[in-house]
Every structure is written in C-alpha cells, then in structure tokens.
Nucleic acid binder design. Structure first.
Lengths: 191, 191
DNA sequence: TGAAGTATATTCACTGGTGAGTATACTTTG
DNA sequence: CAAAGTATACTCACCAGTGAATATACTTCA
C-alpha cells in the first residue's frame, strides 16, 4: 500500500539499526540518527522517550529476524544433526566475510553497556540469547539426546566465541573452527 | 624503594586501567582519568599523545599479566591435560563471580572499537589473543597431540565465548559449561 | 455539514553540560 | 640555569534533552 513513505518511526528505527550496528552505541548521537532518518532530533524524542529507549528498540527489532535466520540455516541444511548445527557456523563465516559485518549486535551492545547491567537493552540481549539456547535445546530434545540443555549451552558458547574472536582477528575462519568443535560435541552426544 | 609516590605516568595508567575496564572506552573521558589519578589533563597529554594512545597503553599493560595468570592456572592445576585446561575455565568462573568483574577487557574493547579496525588498541588486543592461542598450541604440541593448533583454537573459542556469554547473562556458570566442553574436546584429542 | 475543538506529528532554535585537545606559564630538579 | 614535568585556563565541537510553535488529521455536535 503506502510503500513509498515509511513512517517516521520506521525511518528512525532503520537509521538506528544501521548506525548503532556499524558504529556502536555511544559513538552514535541522536543527531546522527535524526540526520540519517531525514527528520529532526525532536521527532526522535517524540517517538522514543530517550536514547536508552531507542537502543532497546534497536535490539528488540533484531530479536526475531536473527532467530529466524538461525532456524532457517539449521532447517535447510542437509545431513545429520551435527551437520545442521555446523551449518549455522559456516553461514556465519560467510556473513562475516562481508566488509560491513561487525559481529553480533547483541554481544557488542552487552560489551559496551557492561557498566549498566540493568539497562533495558541488556535485558533484551540476554532474552535473545536465552531464546536461541532454548530453541537449540528443544531441537536436541526432539531427537532424544541426553543432556540436551548442556549440549545446547556448549554450542552457544562456541557461537558467541566465534562472534567475538572473528571480530578481534578479523578472520572468519574462526567460525569454521567453532563449527567443527560443535560438530564434534554434537556427534559425541548422538554417539 | 620509592613505594610512596608512583610516577605520574604510573598513576595515569592505573586510573586508566580501572576506569576503562569498569566503564568502557568511550564512556570514560580524559578528565575522568586525570581526576582519578590526581593530576590535570594536561599532564595526561604530556605522557600520552592522545586518548587513543592511552587506550593502547591500557591494553598493552594487561597483556603480560593476563597471560601469566592463565599460565599459572594451567601449570598449578593437578590432573591430566584436559583437567589443566578445564582449570582455566573454573578459575574464570570464580573471577566472574566478583561483582567488579566485567568480562575480558580485550574483547570488550574490540567490541566497542569494532568500527575502527586499524585502531592501535585493536592490534594489541589481537596480538594478545593470538599469543594465548599459540601458547596453548605449544602445550598441546609438547604432549604430542595431533592437530594441536586446531584444538587450541577450539579452546580459545570456548574461552572467549565464556567471557561474552557470562557478560550477557551475568551468570558465571557458563564458564563451567565451557570448561566441560573444552575438557571433552581435549580428551577426545588425547584419545 | 461545517465550524470548533482536540490529538498526533513535526519543526526550529535553544540550553546546560561535557568532550578532546591546546597555549601559556609556573615549578621542580639534575 | 635548562630541561622535564605540572598547572591554570582556555577553545571549539558535540551531545542529550527541551520549549514553543506549527501543521495535519481526526472528532464532535449545533
């Protein structure tokens, strides 16, 4: 319908997504975001009550899309369970080779706001990561693995380790190493 | 010797360590650091040519102490190789339960400066992580494991995953889960 | 139905405060 | 005394958030 003009709120969120992800939270001002969205700062404050509120909305807007992507990669991968898990890591390796890739927005925000544990964005980030861990544990349970929860947690650790390590070294090969570790751990559980 | 009055440079570095680690890089100003060090900002600029330079010095000052700690934990742990590796993770779990713990300063700085890949502090951080990976690979090689480099990389992924995940959830148990995963991977290689 | 009122959405111009970095002058000490 | 080290006081840019006014659209009821 009204495809030609997204609402101001949507334009703000789109700009916030791009800038916060590309530059970081504290490196981006609401002036930057307003300019990118083509509106004034006061309009940002009409739709979001503070910068913290916008940061929270930014992460919340990434929750479902990111989870959907992981699910898709898992479901569309061929092979045994271990291969489907490894596929997630190989897809991340591919994504990480794109020059605009800057790691996991949830992890980077958590690192930057580590001095504000009660920040609403931290809660959104923690909930997001927990959802992923639970979803994977359910996939393992469905296949009647023992210790599905523990195994899921180990895979999550490798995944977040891959995000962090790739960012430090700018080397996407770490995702593949993590994928092989995950494959070994899953295979060991499948027995 | 001259224990009573550390040099201005040392006081700046100590203040930078505490503040950058506790609050993050962009959240801390050189005014904050000068005040904490009990000197004026101009003195900071006498000893360090810019904030970026001080950030680099902050990370550089953590390189050897952190590596020494990992080595100590590994060497002083009893048991087989897998137990010695797991000990590092259990020590991190203990450290992470301290209220002032805020993750790995290298990883958090890398996350915050992800938009400045050429930043000198990023190079220091990458070199630090690489040293750890190489040291562990050497320990594996000395014990004549196959694929020492690949195994070391997997352990590193779990370690950095633990740092990140604990920070997101504020739950040190993730370090123990990572330790068990590392133990399994090492045991599998020892055979 | 159309004028008066009201809620939504937006702008311009501003404030109080803080940021990195500096010009200049004073002080200590070898 | 001269060089190293430190302080005072400053610049200029930016930042989160706000005050006052305005435009637009949607009611309500005479």
């Amino acid at each position: 319908m009204n495809r030609q003009t997204p609402s101001a709120r949507d334009r703000i969120l789109t700009a916030a997504n791009r800038l916060f992800y590309a530059e970081g939270i504290r490196a981006v001002s609401l002036d930057n975001i307003a300019e990118k969205a083509g509106i004034t700062k006061k309009t940002v404050y009409y739709h979001f009550k503070s910068k913290d509120d916008l940061v929270e909305a930014y992460l919340a807007s990434r929750d479902q899309p990111n989870l959907a992507l992981y699910r898709k990669w898992f479901e569309e991968a061929d092979g045994r369970l271990a291969d489907k898990v490894a596929a997630i890591f190989y897809q991340i390796a591919t994504a990480a080779r794109h020059p605009k890739w800057k790691g996991c927005g949830f992890l980077r925000t958590a690192a930057e706001l580590a001095n504000m544990p009660g920040h609403p964005a931290m809660k959104v980030g923690a909930a997001h990561k927990k959802k992923f861990e639970l979803w994977l544990a359910e996939e393992f349970e469905r296949r009647e693995l023992d210790d599905a929860a523990a195994l899921s947690r180990q895979v999550v650790l490798l995944l977040d380790g891959a995000f962090s390590t790739i960012l430090v070294h700018r080397d996407a090969d770490y995702a593949e190493a993590a994928g092989e570790a995950a494959r070994a751990l899953v295979d060991r559980a499948v027995k």
